[in-house]
Amino acid sequence: MTDIPALKLKNQICHSLYSATNALIRAYRPLLDQLGLTYAQYLVMLALWDEDKVIIKSLVQRTRFDAGTLTPILKRLESKQLLTMVKASSDSRQKVIVLTEQGKDLADRARRIPDNISGKIDMPVEDAQQLKALAEQLYALINTNLAESETE
Rank of each mutant, 00 (worst) to 15 (best):
M1P: 12
I4H: 12
P5C: 04
L7Y: 14
L9H: 05
K10S: 12
K10T: 12
I13E: 09
H15L: 15
S16M: 08
L17K: 03
L17V: 09
Y18C: 08
S19C: 09
S19K: 13
T21I: 04
N22G: 10
L24F: 10
L24P: 00
A27E: 13
A27H: 10
L31C: 03
L31Q: 08
D33H: 12
L35T: 02
L37Y: 02
T38L: 05
V44K: 00
M45D: 00
A47E: 13
A47Y: 02
L48S: 00
W49L: 00
D52Y: 08
V54I: 15
I55M: 05
I56L: 03
S58F: 11
L59I: 03
F65C: 01
F65K: 03
D66G: 06
K75T: 05
L77M: 05
E78G: 05
L82G: 00
L83C: 02
T84S: 09
T84C: 06
V86L: 12
K87W: 03
A88S: 14
A88E: 09
S89C: 05
S90Y: 12
S92T: 14
R93E: 08
L99K: 00
L99A: 01
L99V: 02
T100L: 06
T100A: 03
G103H: 01
D105T: 07
A107Y: 03
D108C: 11
D108Q: 13
A110P: 09
A110G: 05
R112P: 11
R112W: 10
I113M: 00
S118C: 11
K120M: 11
I121T: 04
D122E: 15
V125P: 03
V125Q: 12
D127Y: 15
A128C: 08
A128F: 09
Q130F: 10
Q130M: 12
Q130A: 14
L131I: 12
K132I: 14
K132T: 13
E136V: 07
E136S: 09
Q137G: 04
Q137F: 14
T144A: 05
N145W: 11
A147S: 15
A147L: 15
E148I: 13
S149P: 03
S149D: 06
E150Y: 11
E152T: 11
E152M: 09
